[in-house]
Structures are given as C-alpha cells and as structure tokens.
Amino acid sequence: MAIADIRQRPGVLFVSAILLHVVIISTQVNAPSGRPLLSALTFGVVGEVQRASMGVVRGVQGAWGGYVALHEVQEENARLEQQVQTLQVRLQEQRAMAERAQSLRQLLELRERAGLDTVAAEVIAGPASPDFRTVTIDRGSREGLAADMSVISPAGVVGRVIQPSARAAIVQLIVDRNAAAGALIERSRVQGVVLGVGSETLQLEYVSDTADVQPGDLVVTSGIDGIHPKGFVIGTVDRVDAGTNGFHVIAVRPAVDFSRLEEVLVVVTPPPGRALTDPGP
C-alpha cells in the first residue's frame, strides 16, 4: 500500500532520490577515507559475474566451434577444403599461442629486471562506464593485492589498483581523469606530475617554463608519489607549449597501448617510505 502511495507521487520520489545522491556525494567529497562499503560490495558481486560471464562466453565459443567443425566433417565433398581450413585454424592458434608466449616472456623478463615482488594478472573486463578509464584484472586480495599498488606492463606504467575484491581488482589506468603520478624527464631529470585527462594522451604539469623539455624526451616515474616504483616508463613527450602561469603545457604520449592490454604485473612490494599496511588517502 505504502509503495503504491509513493508511486503516485513521483515528485516526492524524485526529490528523495536527489537528496540521497547528494548525501552520498557529500560524505565522499568532504571526508575522502577509502572506498565506501556499497562500492566494495557491488564490485565483489559484479567481479564474480564478470568472471562467470567470461567463462560462459568461452564455453559457448568452444561448443559452437566444436559443433561447426563436426558438422563440416560430415560433408565428404568438402573434406580437402576442411583439412585446409583446419590447418589454417591451427596455424592461427599456433600464432596466437606464440604471441601469448612472447607476451608472457616479456612479462617474465620485466619481473626479473625490475627486482620487485610482483603478481601476474590477466585483464578480464573493461570499464563499467565510458566516463572512467579502468580495467578489471583476475587477481585480488587473495593473491596479496591491495589498494594503491602499482600496475605495470613490459611497455610501461599501466596504473594502480583502486579496489581489490577477493579474486579480482579494479585498476585505474594512468589515462583516467582521476589518475596522477610523480614523473621526471629522463634526459634532464626535470620533475613534474603526470595527469590523466581521460583521452589517449597525458599531461605533464608543474614543469617550469624555463626547464629543459623537448618533444621525444622519455618520461619516467619519479617514485615520489609512494605508489609507482622509480624509473618505469610512462611515455614520451609529444608536444611542449608555452603556458600562462610560468609552467610548460606538456602533452605526453603513453608508452602503453591501453586498447591492447592483456597481461599486467602488479607490484606488491611497497615503494620505500610506504608500508603495505598504509591505508592510503
């Protein structure tokens, strides 16, 4: 009865919903103390759904491929053609496996080169909204992942873990609008802060307009943010423009191709000066 009454008053419901959102937003903006419970619970559930969905998709792909192959085998007239097709598919599979092995080898080399404790993870899903640049990986707190751990790939810095659940985690890509990292120009050792702008480029800010920065310069992590280890590649300087406040306006092209991201390494060794138990901002 009460529900029916509310449905008759959409205006009241609308104002209530708006107020609810305002309260939710206010609590976070005024007191940013980690992820809210609702957020963690929702991701815990959706992370499992994403894992299950991926399993179903792979199962259906396998079943469908098997059915089509069996069906075509029965057609005697097309036997030779079938053999050629099968070999072509196998060739593609071998190529895919070789590419994957190459990718994993690069990951392994990076792990050995970096000398850090890392956990390898696979990207299992993209962002839930086009307004955010995040990915979901198939490793979570069970494998030792925690918020604010750096995520890297053989090409360079990928981002940071923002929300781990038991068996999955959301990674904020460095190109996300809310992302930032301490950075320096490798050649001239000029320091700044790299900010994501939500597109495929980054901005390097707080670099004095008298500093030595040129297009093509390599931008690496400075390690001062307490998240990313020092010396990992972020990208290359694409454009340097004169700013108005005494700072350069610098566009940086990320080293990582985020549209082809498949495997990553999560750095579980905290950078010097930050313990693992640090709750973060």
Partner: peptide, 21 residues
Amino acid sequence: GLAQDALGSGVLGIGGLAKTI
C-alpha cells in the same frame, strides 16, 4: 548510475545523480 559509480574510479553518486535525473 550507482552501480557504474561503484565500479568506476570517481565519486560514488555523481553518475547516479545524473542518471536519476
């Protein structure tokens, strides 16, 4: 909107408010 916010990297509620309206 709240579900998308919870899975994103932003403030919980902003996408929810936008989609509610």
